[in-house]
Write a protein that binds this DNA or RNA. Structure first.
Length: 373
RNA sequence: GCGGCCAUGGUGAAACGGUUAUCACACCAGUUUGUGGUACUGGUAUUACGGGUUCGAUUCCCGUUGGCCGCC
């Protein structure tokens, strides 16, 4: 299923086989929360170079629901996406979205943000929904603690997630690949206990959860590096939910293979663009080298990219391309002034061009990282 | 030329003889990390000019300048 093809110190370049084709690692998953990457068609996402997308059990459970999804023939067919799909289990959404919820060892109760319906989500329920979706890779249902939690809360979330991991492994559809999620906050001993517990159960891959949720970045770096040397060599490692380009470069340098993050797509809709500072080939090679030498995040980011707010006044008459180093066609043919105009006049095309730029940036970043490993 | 109306941040408006002149947009700075669909939090900046009445004027009066409407 997963094979490491080459290594550069701790970093790995590999190949992950799925029911819908193979994926070169390390890779980034654009987020199609409700079965669509916002503003993009599946063909657009494919043409930008995405190998896989992430969708959300929580959102699809609310609409179209489990029965509806079965009737529609599963998500691949529904959204006309022939490549792999990974689904999140809904555990994180309960943590980040649901205001009213009660968590106990059996599962979670919360109210739909759409119509207030009371919903019960359990490890078994999440497995059933992910089976209905037909994802290639499914995630265990987990309990996520906020980034400033007490050790007691981190421990509770970790132990509960471990119990749920067992139940997910016992009830999932075996045609799918299932990943366990390491919890334990910023404490290495809790993380180790979590990782070992999951390895005893045995999963197709291992995710690092509960980071980028408010803790300090150096804590996330430390924990991820620690897990890079703890998790099995022959299984893919997935850093959930992160991050900025410099974070991804660092995590790849310590052995992480998979990423997803809302930043490129959400920032795009808010007019914040990731723009290459120089030719990506050279930029990424240099950033990766800095990461391996233990440089901090600011140093890694320094010559890699700049973050620009396209709505700012200085771009009003800037007729230079959106990104002269991008390989996204629209980013080379349309100007910054035009994109700013589209944002200022609320034209939908602006959201789309910005999303293409940012996703194109992230996907190119991963491509260049694969080259240097 | 005569008569009438008007002049408030960069723009468009609001207010009142009495605390620190309000709002929107624009502008500037920041935030966004397993997505509740274009968000959020801060910040800069204004009574055309000159004089008068008054304890106090952005408000009332006179003049200047500028604009709009009508008349010859």
């Amino acid at each position: 299923m997963f094979r490491v093809k080459s290594k550069n110190n701790l970093a790995r370049h590999g190949r992950l086989e799925t029911a819908h084709g193979a994926i070169e690692t390390p890779f980034f998953m654009p987020i199609a929360t409700r079965g669509a990457v916002k503003t993009m068609s599946s063909e657009d996402v494919r043409d930008l170079g995405a190998q896989i997308v992430l969708s959300n059990t929580y959102h699809l459970l609310l609409r179209p629901g489990s029965e509806g999804m079965k009737k529609l023939g599963g998500l691949h067919e529904f959204m006309h996406w022939g490549k792999p799909i990974l689904t999140d289990s809904g555990g994180y959404q309960v943590f980040s979205l649901a205001k009213i919820n009660a968590t106990d060892d059996d599962g979670v109760s919360f109210q739909s943000h759409i119509d207030g319906t009371r919903i019960r989500l359990t490890p078994e329920g999440s497995m059933a929904m992910q089976a209905a979706i037909g994802s290639d890779i499914i995630m265990q249902f987990d309990d996520v603690a906020a980034g400033d939690s007490s050790r007691e809360r981190y421990q509770e979330a970790m132990e509960r997630s471990l119990g749920w991991a067992r139940r997910c492994k016992d009830s999932y559809d075996q045609k799918q690949q299932i990943f366990g999620i390491v919890q334990g906050g910023t404490h290495e001993d809790l993380r180790r206990q979590s990782a070992e517990g999951l390895m005893d159960i045995g999963f197709d891959g291992y995710a690092i959860g509960g980071l980028s949720v408010g803790e300090k970045r150096e804590d996330a770096f430390r924990i991820t590096k620690f897990l890079g040397s703890t998790l099995p060599e022959d299984k893919p490692r997935y850093f959930m939910g992160g991050g900025m380009p410099e974070e991804i470069v660092y995590y790849v340098s310590v052995g992480v293979d998979m990423f997803d993050c809302v930043l490129p797509t959400r920032n795009a809709r808010h007019g914040t663009l990731f723009v290459w500072k120089q030719d990506p080939k050279e930029a990424v090679r240099h950033a990766f080298q800095l990461a391996q030498e233990g440089a901090n995040d600011a140093m890694i980011a320094e010559n890699l990219y700049q973050s620009i707010s396209i709505t700012k006044e200085p771009y009003a008459f800037d007729l230079s391309p959106i990104d002269q180093f991008s390989d996204v066609v629209s980013s080379k043919t349309y100007t910054k002034a035009y994109l700013r105009h589209l944002f200022k006049t609320d034209e939908m095309l602006g959201l789309r061009l910005a999303t293409m730029q940012n996703l194109g940036f992230y996907l190119r970043l991963m491509k260049e990282l694969r080259r240097v490993i």
